[in-house]
Design a protein around this nucleic acid. Sequence first.
DNA 1: ATACAAATTGAACATCGTTCAGTAGTATTT
DNA 2: AAATACTACTGAACGATGTTCAATTTGTAT
Lengths: 198, 198
Amino acid sequence: MARRGDHSRAEIHRMALDAAERLIAAEGDRGFSARKVASAIGYTVGTLYLVFENLDDLVLQVNGRTLDDLFYALQKRQGATGDDPETALLALSNAYIAYAEAESPRWNMLFDAVAEKGDNPPDWYQQKLGRVFGLVEAALSPLTQDATEIQRVARVLWASVHGICLLKIRQRMNLAGGQSAEDMARLLIENFLRGFRG
Amino acid sequence: MARRGDHSRAEIHRMALDAAERLIAAEGDRGFSARKVASAIGYTVGTLYLVFENLDDLVLQVNGRTLDDLFYALQKRQGATGDDPETALLALSNAYIAYAEAESPRWNMLFDAVAEKGDNPPDWYQQKLGRVFGLVEAALSPLTQDATEIQRVARVLWASVHGICLLKIRQRMNLAGGQSAEDMARLLIENFLRGFRG
DNA sequence: ATACAAATTGAACATCGTTCAGTAGTATTT
DNA sequence: AAATACTACTGAACGATGTTCAATTTGTAT
């Protein structure tokens, strides 16, 4: 058992998130509970509640980390700044799909958290999300000067690739011969951009 | 309490699904449990397990009904068979969005059921899903004779509209001024089709 | 009336999220 | 050094969950 003063609150916080990530990666959303996280870091349930409001709070913070992780994964595979939008978008989209597949448990968890009671996620969360979003907007920026139009297009394409990813990952797409998520996203992006450029 | 022979197994089955739908509509996925469903139909927990394998099974069957419901909702708003693909697709897409908004708890439940253990949903479920899918393919059929290409495009567009819907319903889109899901879907469909037609 | 079989129960089990009075170890004061 | 104050941490308790299954009730057939 942990002794008083072994770890600061911040350390316990971090340790708990680490442990939660490990548990989720290993056993999925199902096999993950307050008691398991607590015992994985050598503390008991009660201690978790000194550091997190409740389990939803913990999950939200795990999701925050996932968004950071995703951001860096996308950034790494992002092409050069001079790339044409199509190349850049395909790179991003493939990176997104690859991330979702490689990290499917935590990626799933990102979107399982149903918006309960209609209250929005906190600011810091929306900012992390916005940063990911920004990558798509950057890829689109050569297309037009109209910033609000770029926002609109970015959101549409993002949501679309996300939808493709979802149906693929959750294996609901074995209707008729299975093309890959990458191929579907390419079909989408190529045609959309051709249409958009006029 | 219910007495022996009050209801056949099939009746209990139906009653339970009715009650589950009511509970989900009223209190969402959270406030819905085996005991609540059982007591809502005047039986006890044990009886539910004579009629359903487990709770996941019950949810799957609720989802099956939702797919039927969705199919009829889309079919009703489907345009005339002679419509051009764009008109037909926009009608379907708007109907889908309207359904998701009107029936958001059960619509959400459709996609929350994570594919556990990688086992596919049963045949009857995939058929219900395929029927919904078929509506999109029908709308696209004037575009080309190539059946597999129609399938591909239908899947991509379906997944995309679904993604737009998801981000909208789960309120993750309050990043920057909020356009409606319908507008986003229109932007997607118009540009995609313009690009696709060449 | 008696016996048989099937329908229904509800207590039991392990687990869950959450709370909070209590304990035990550290720091400060006397 | 002893006594006091403080607080990090515990773990039992609560109500709820999904699931099982021995026991009971009840309709039907003999």
